[in-house]
C-alpha cells in the first residue's frame, strides 16, 4: 500500500467531502426544520431542492440564449441563480404545505406522509412535463461559467477550483444567516416556540399557521440554494436527480438528531465526509477489493452504527417530559 499516496490525497478528499457535506447540510435543514415544527417528514423536499436547480439552469440558459452570459460578471450571475433558486423553491414549499399538508394537519400521522410522497412523484413528473414542452429535453446541463472552473494548484496532487470555494462559502454564509435568524431574532424565537408547543405559542399571540408557512419557506429557500449549488458543482440535472441527495440529506438530518438545526448541519457534513473518504480510500485500503462504488454501503453502515449507540442522533436531546 502506498502510504504516501494516502497522505497526499487527503486534503483533496477532505475538500470534496466538505462540498458534498455542506450541500447535504443545506438540504437537511429543510427536513429538520419542518420536522421540528410539525413532527412530519416532508418527503417532497427532495423535489423542492431539485426545482431550485431547474430554476437556476433556466436562468443560465436564458442568459446564454440572450447572449448575455459572457458579458455579466460571474458573481452577479451566481447571485442571480441563487436568488432565483431560493425564491422558486421557497414559494413552492409554502404552496405545497398550503395545498397538500395543511388540510391534513389533524389527520393521523401516516396520511400527510402519503400526501408528501404523492407530491414528490407529482413534482418529478411536473418538472419533466414542463421541461419537455419548453425545451424538448429534461436532462439539462448547466452552462459552464469559465471563471468558476479556474483551478488553483496547491501542490502536485491537490488543486482547488473556484467553484468549490464558491459552494463552500455560499453554504457557510447561508448556514450562518439561518443561525442568526433562528437564534437571534424575535421571529426565530417564535419558530422555536411553535416547534415546542403550538397551543402555548398561540396563547402568546403567535399566528402558528404563519410560522409554519415561514418554516416551510426557509426550508425551501435553503433547499433551492442547495439545488443551484448542486447544478453548478455537478453540471447535469434531471427531474429525478433530487431523490438520492434528498434521501441522503434526510439521513443526515436523522444522524444529527431530527428536529435539531445544528444537528442537521453537523449530520450533513459528517455524511459528506464519510462518503468522500469511502469513495477515495476504500479501494486503496482494501487493495481494490472494495471500489468507490461501495461508498454508500460504508457511509450508511457507519450511520447505522452511530444510531445504534445514539438513537436520538449526534446532537439529539432526550427531551424531558413536561411535569
Amino acid at each position: 500500500m502506498d502510504f504516501q499516496l494516502l497522505v497526499d490525497i487527503f486534503p483533496q478528499v477532505l475538500l470534496d467531502g466538505l462540498i458534498l457535506g455542506f450541500m447535504y447540510a443545506l438540504i437537511a435543514l429543510g427536513y429538520t426544520m419542518v420536522y421540528g415544527v410539525l413532527e412530519f417528514i416532508n418527503f417532497a423536499h427532495s423535489e423542492i431542492f431539485i426545482v431550485g436547480a431547474f430554476a437556476g439552469v433556466e436562468i443560465l440558459l436564458g442568459l446564454k440564449g440572450a447572449g448575455w452570459l459572457d458579458g455579466l460578471p460571474w458573481p452577479l450571475v451566481l447571485l442571480l441563480l441563487l436568488l432565483a433558486g431560493m425564491a422558486v423553491s421557497g414559494l413552492l414549499a409554502v404552496t405545497v404545505e398550503r395545498i397538500a399538508y395543511r388540510p391534513l394537519r389533524s389527520a393521523p400521522r401516516l396520511i400527510p406522509l402519503i400526501s408528501a410522497i404523492g407530491v414528490s412523484f407529482f413534482l418529478q413528473d411536473l418538472i419533466r412535463l414542463v421541461e419537455s414542452i419548453w425545451r424538448n429535453a429534461f436532462n439539462l446541463v448547466y452552462p459552464t461559467l469559465d471563471a468558476l472552473n479556474l483551478r488553483f494548484e496547491l501542490t502536485e496532487t491537490i488543486d482547488v477550483s473556484v467553484k468549490s470555494i464558491v459552494v463552500i462559502v455560499a453554504a457557510l454564509g447561508m448556514l450562518w444567516v439561518l443561525h442568526l435568524l433562528v437564534n437571534r431574532t424575535k421571529i426565530g424565537t417564535a419558530i422555536r416556540a411553535v416547534a415546542e408547543d403550538q397551543a402555548a405559542a398561540s396563547l402568546m399571540g403567535i399566528d402558528v399557521n404563519r410560522i409554519i408557512s415561514l418554516t416551510f419557506f426557509i426550508g425551501g429557500v435553503m433547499g433551492g440554494a442547495a439545488g443551484v449549488l448542486f447544478g453548478v458543482q455537478y453540471g447535469l440535472i434531471n427531474p429525478y436527480s433530487g431523490f438520492i441527495p434528498g434521501l441522503k440529506a434526510f439521513t443526515a438530518a436523522v444522524l444529527g438528531g431530527i428536529g435539531n438545526i445544528p444537528g442537521a448541519m453537523l449530520g450533513g457534513i459528517v455524511l459528506g465526509l464519510l462518503e468522500a473518504f469511502a469513495a477515495s480510500y476504500l479501494s486503496l485500503l482494501t487493495g481494490g477489493a472494495f471500489g468507490a462504488e461501495y461508498k454508500d454501503i460504508f457511509a450508511f453502515s457507519v450511520l447505522i452504527l452511530i444510531l445504534i449507540f445514539r438513537p436520538k442522533g449526534l446532537l439529539g436531546e432526550i427531551v424531558r417530559e413536561r411535569a
Partner: peptide, 15 residues
C-alpha cells in the same frame, strides 16, 4: 404551565 423548556427565561418572557 406550558413554558417553552428549550428557550431561555428571557426568551420565554419576550415571547
Amino acid at each position: 404551565r406550558r413554558i417553552f423548556n428549550r428557550l431561555t427565561v428571557r426568551e420565554n418572557l419576550m415571547m
